[in-house]
Simulated scan of single mutants.
Amino acid sequence: MSAAKLQLLRHAMERYAPLSQSTWKQVQQSCSERKLAKGEILVQIGAPSQHLYFVCQGLLRSYTLSEDGKEYNKKFFPENTFPGSIRALLTGGPSDFALQALEASVVLAIDHPAYRRLLEKAEDLKWYHIQYLETNWVLDKEPIEVGLALSDSSARYQAFVEKHASILHRIPLHHIASAIGVTPTQLSRIRKL
C-alpha cells in the first residue's frame, strides 16, 4: 500500500477534523489495499462486511435489488469518498445493498472492528466520526430524501446533475435513470427538454 494512497485517506478524513499522529498511525495499521476490475462487486447484497472503504481511484455505485430483480442505484462514490454499509457494520448483519466498481478502481479497506476499538479511545477520531456522520448522513441525505418524495422527475434529474457535475460523464445513463427513479426512456425524454 503506497504512502500516497494513505495520504489521500488522511487528507479526506482531516477535511472533517484533524487527527493526531498517534491516531493516524493506528488508522493506517487497520488499512489494506484492494484493486477492483470494472464491474467487480466489492460487497454483495446479503453479505456481512467487516470493512469501511475509501476510494483512492475509480468510481463505485451502491445499489439494491427489488424482489423481481430490478436494480435501484442508491449512491455513487468517486475518489475521496467512503462507500460502505454502515448499518451492516454496526449491526453485524447483512448488507442491504451491493457495492460495484463502475470503473477499474483502487480502494483502501479499513478494518471496522479495529476502527471501532480505536474510536472508543481516540477523542480526535470521535470528533472526525461525528463530523463525517453529520455531514454525510444528515445534511446531505435529508434533502435527497425529501427531493425524491416531493420532486418531479425533471427536478430530480436537475438536482442529480448539479450534485454530480464533476463525475456525470463517468456514470452510465441507465444508472442515472435508476438513481432518480425513472426508466432510461423517460430519462432520454427529460434530457431533451
Score class of each variant (00 low, 15 high):
192 K>L: 05
96 D>T: 08
173 L>P: 01
165 A>E: 14
70 K>C: 07
25 K>S: 14
140 D>A: 13
164 H>Y: 15
31 C>D: 02
141 K>M: 11
178 S>E: 01
38 K>V: 15
112 H>K: 03
85 S>R: 03
104 A>D: 06
42 L>V: 08
15 R>V: 07
2 S>L: 11
64 T>W: 10
66 S>P: 03
44 Q>H: 14
120 E>P: 00
105 S>I: 03
118 L>Q: 02
10 R>Y: 05
48 P>I: 11
106 V>W: 00
189 R>I: 03
183 T>K: 04
151 S>A: 15
44 Q>G: 07
29 Q>S: 12
170 R>C: 12
136 N>V: 00
168 L>G: 04
152 D>V: 10
136 N>D: 09
100 Q>S: 07
111 D>G: 03
102 L>H: 01
150 L>F: 15
30 S>G: 09
63 Y>L: 10
81 T>S: 14
41 I>H: 12
151 S>T: 04
168 L>M: 06
10 R>W: 04
13 M>L: 15
115 Y>A: 09
102 L>G: 02
147 G>H: 05
165 A>K: 10
81 T>L: 02
107 V>G: 02
60 L>C: 11
26 Q>T: 07
75 K>L: 09
141 K>A: 15
1 M>D: 03
115 Y>T: 02
51 H>R: 10
94 P>I: 11
19 L>T: 08
86 I>Q: 06
40 E>I: 08
134 E>T: 08
139 L>V: 14
28 Q>W: 02
92 G>I: 13
132 Y>Q: 09
65 L>E: 09
190 I>F: 06
85 S>G: 12
33 E>A: 15
26 Q>S: 12
18 P>T: 07
69 G>W: 09
113 P>E: 09
1 M>W: 03
82 F>H: 04
49 S>N: 06
82 F>K: 02
133 L>F: 10
158 Q>P: 03
60 L>E: 04
77 F>W: 12
183 T>A: 04
55 V>K: 00
113 P>G: 10
13 M>N: 09
16 Y>C: 05
136 N>A: 02
127 W>P: 00
77 F>V: 13
30 S>H: 04
181 G>I: 04
161 V>H: 13
